[in-house]
Computed example of a mutant assay.
Amino acid sequence: MLVAAALGYLLGSVPFGLLLTRFTGAGDLRAIGSGNIGATNVLRTGRKGLAAATLLLDLAKGAAAVWLGRLLATDPAAVADPAAVAGAAAVIGHCFPLWLRFRGGKGVATLMGVSLGLAWGIGGVYAAVWLGMLALTRISSLGGMSAAVAAPVAAQLLGHPGYVPVLAALAALVLWLHRANIVRLLNGTEPRVGSKPKAGPAE
């Protein structure tokens, strides 16, 4: 279980957004927009391809962590599922990477990868809610938070109750990391995708 958690954390803590923007000459992502290392902030560099690559890689590391956890699942009587433990650790690693002084992303893409890795149905609901809410509102943070909350609900409804606690805990983490976004949503000042950013930090 400890090995699963360690491998998951190490995978999750790889800051793909930061690495891609540096290697392509787009600058230090931490000095752009909100300073976040996720795909939404990469999009603020004007490099849509880099943002898409960041999204896919952040998603992939979540799914890869679950896969590695399953390889380690040798004890059917284990108290917890190593795949779920590794997936949770990957999200935590993305949000709090040791190499960046624990200042990472908000975990939305990595949590989608974990959801897909745990069960395709859960991941499918996650993606549908995320994309649907984003298309409806054009607010990135609202789409991500809605998808995170939908994951444990989908797990319960689709017959995976064992995954509900970990997905609910990760959804709570995503909401907590978006607390500033929630305040802006309530105030009606949360920026929409494609709009010109106003002064001050964004999602």
Rank of each mutant, 00 (worst) to 15 (best):
V3A: 13
A4E: 12
A5H: 03
A6F: 03
L7E: 08
L11K: 01
L11T: 02
G12V: 00
G12A: 01
S13I: 10
V14D: 08
P15H: 00
G17N: 07
L19T: 05
R22P: 07
R22Q: 14
G25Q: 07
A26I: 13
G27R: 00
I32M: 11
S34I: 09
G35K: 09
N36V: 04
G38V: 00
A39Y: 08
T40M: 08
N41L: 14
V42A: 00
V42R: 04
V42G: 00
L43H: 05
L43Y: 10
R44P: 05
T45W: 11
R47F: 13
R47D: 15
K48I: 13
L50V: 11
A53W: 05
L56D: 13
D58L: 01
L59G: 10
A60G: 01
G62M: 01
A63P: 03
V66A: 06
W67R: 14
G69W: 01
L72D: 11
L72S: 09
A73L: 06
A73R: 03
A73M: 03
T74K: 13
T74D: 12
D75V: 02
P76G: 00
P76N: 08
A77Y: 11
V79Y: 08
A80Q: 15
P82Y: 02
A84E: 11
A89C: 11
A90H: 05
V91T: 05
I92M: 12
I92N: 08
G93K: 04
G93S: 02
H94C: 00
C95A: 11
F96P: 09
P97I: 01
W99V: 12
W99K: 12
L100P: 07
L100T: 10
R101D: 15
F102D: 09
R103S: 10
G105E: 00
K106P: 07
K106A: 14
T110A: 09
L111V: 06
M112S: 09
S115N: 08
S115W: 02
G117F: 03
L118C: 13
L118E: 09
A119K: 12
G121E: 09
G123V: 01
G124W: 06
A127Q: 03
A128S: 08
A128T: 13
W130I: 01
L131P: 00
L134V: 11
L134K: 08
A135F: 15
A135D: 07
S140C: 06
S140I: 06
S141K: 02
L142D: 03
L142V: 13
G144H: 13
G144Y: 15
G144N: 02
M145R: 02
A148R: 04
A150P: 08
A151P: 02
A151E: 06
P152R: 06
P152M: 10
L157H: 01
L158F: 05
G159R: 06
H160M: 12
H160Q: 15
G162C: 04
G162A: 09
G162M: 09
Y163S: 12
V164I: 03
V164G: 11
V166M: 07
V166C: 01
A169I: 06
L170D: 03
L170A: 10
L170E: 06
L173A: 06
V174G: 14
L175F: 02
R179V: 03
A180N: 14
A180L: 14
I182N: 14
L186K: 12
L186F: 09
L186I: 15
N187V: 11
N187I: 00
S195C: 06
S195M: 01
K196T: 15
K196D: 14
A199L: 15
A199F: 13
G200I: 11
P201S: 13
A202L: 12
E203Q: 10
E203W: 15
